[in-house]
Design a protein around this nucleic acid. Structure first.
Length: 425
RNA sequence: GGAGAGGUGGCCGAGUCGGCUGAAGGCGCUCGCCUGCUAAGCGAGUGUAUGGGGUCAACCUGUACCGAGGGUUCGAAUCCCUCCCUCUCCGCCA
């Protein structure tokens, strides 16, 4: 969310920077609402000041008959205050509604562009393996090995669900544990196991609401949402809190399942594990002082890349352009893993700096000194990594001619020493 | 699900019959003093948001906030209603 004062004083600049995301945003209603709000507030507060003063006087007067006239007058004043407050409430709700639907300002270093075609490849790691046979897509491998079952998942739940079995299920679990161990033991993140359902306030805090309710799975009674990413519950851990600068950066990692309706992606990635209504993810979340957020994003990105390096999976890093970054993000780097079955790099992690956008929505602040004024933290997060996509990347990159899949070295301890997944009965 | 208790400032904890209570007291914290270490002691200060003024920083001033939202009243932390959350006991349950 925007700083109202910034917007008030830099309306034109804000309009231009937002326009770089593609699509004009009309900020004129803001100026109008903000002006009306301040006028109403001033009027209402002047009346309240008078009422407070007179009420104190009435309170001190023993003989109420002496102040009967004032009491009557204050009855009128109170009526007017009530009317003004009501109008003010309407204006503020409208203003808030507008502010909550404005996306974040892109970072100054974010490449300007209109679509993913303008994203900038920063680097790549690892050489895509040359196959002496035709590489199969993971869904064929998984089904032939008897460890991946889309048909039965469809029977149980529906499209875009999957079911892992035997060594497949164990591999998913191994990946979760491997990632969590890496981030907690070597990258200094604190492990969190948060609620998988959250309330509206939490969803609003990180930016999913009010704009993207259609993408979320919702429970009517009680009014809960299934989390689309651990970012939501984990970032909201410190909602309405003031942290101490000495405790920053606060770094959390969390495994959670993620639930997404994928409402706008009919027909895309309909086969395989790429796009599911439910998938597992290990997330990295940081709360940092503003001046460190760029650097912390680089570190977070590197922490996520490390997972792929240890798994020996080729990948590249892409700097998303202004037209491709998400609603709440100021800067985003995607990590894309090489998929031989598709002969393409596909997103496996998205690492973003939200600056103070989420912090303002969720009131997450810090103090530099014990007596200092509270300031907004910067929040960051990134996948470290999407587990299902990592599993499918292993299937495709580690497949053998006979259809078996070799287990990456670092995962074998998590697989009870298993070195290769072969067809299961 | 049933019965009961409760939600006050960073924490603990007072708030009588509604009226100088933004909120006693204690702890913690900050600054200063003192004690040649540590501890103790003394003094002062110590919420957030927002509007206005300002040499726009330290400052002055208005308003709001005692779980949330309504209501009663000239005036509510204090009375009434609704909701949320926490705790205890019973029931149920992984």
């Amino acid at each position: 969310m925007f700083d109202v004062k910034y917007l008030r004083d830099n309306l034109e600049q804000a309009r231009e920077r937002l326009a770089s995301r593609g699509g004009e945003i009309d900020l004129a209603p803001f100026a109008d609402l903000d002006g009306r709000r301040r006028t109403l507030l001033g009027d209402a507060e002047a009346l309240k000041a008078e009422r407070n003063k007179v009420s104190a006087l009435i309170g001190k007067t023993k003989d109420k008959s002496q102040v009967q006239g004032e009491i009557v007058r204050m009855q009128e004043v109170s009526k007017r205050i009530k009317a003004l407050d009501e109008e003010l409430k309407g204006v503020e709700a409208e203003l808030q509604g507008l502010l909550l639907t404005l996306p974040n300002l892109p970072h100054e270093d974010c490449p300007v562009g209109t679509s993913e075609d303008d994203n900038r490849e920063l680097r790549s790691w690892g050489e895509p393996r040359q196959f002496e046979f035709e590489a199969k897509p993971h869904w064929e491998l998984g089904e032939q090995l008897g460890v991946l079952d889309f048909e039965r998942a469809g029977k149980i739940a529906g499209a875009r669900f999957s079911l892992l079995r035997g060594a497949g299920a164990r591999l998913e679990r191994a990946l979760i544990n491997f990632m969590l161990d890496l981030h907690t033991d070597h990258h200094n993140y604190v492990e969190i196991l948060p609620p998988f359902m959250v309330n509206r306030e939490a969803m609003t805090g990180t930016g999913q609401l009010p704009k993207f309710e259609d993408d979320l799975f919702h429970l009517d009674d009680p009014d809960f949402f299934l989390i689309p990413t651990a970012e939501v519950p984990v970032t909201n851990i410190h909602r309405d809190e003031i942290l101490a600068a000495v405790d920053l950066p606060v770094c959390y990692t969390a495994y959670t399942p993620c639930f997404r309706k994928e409402a706008g992606s009919h027909g895309r990635d309909t086969r395989g594990l790429i796009r599911q209504h439910q998938f597992n993810k290990v997330e990295l979340v940081k709360f940092v002082v503003p001046e460190e957020s760029d650097r912390e994003l680089e570190k977070l990105l590197d922490n996520a890349e490390e997972v792929l390096r240890q798994l020996q999976l080729p990948y590249r890093v892409v700097d998303l352009c202004t037209g491709d970054i998400g609603f709440s993000a100021a800067r985003t780097f995607d990590i894309e893993v090489w998929l031989p079955g598709q002969q393409a790099y596909r997103e496996i992690s998205s690492c973003s700096n939200f600056r103070d956008f989420q912090a303002r929505r969720a009131a997450i602040r810090f103090r530099r000194e014990a007596k200092g004024k509270p300031e907004l933290v910067h929040t960051l997060n990134g996948s470290g990594l999407a587990v299902g996509r990592t599993l499918l990347a292993i299937f495709e990159n580690y497949q053998q001619k006979d259809g078996s899949v070799v287990i990456p070295e670092v995962l074998r301890p998590y697989m009870g020493g298993l070195e290769k997944i072969t067809a299961q009965g």
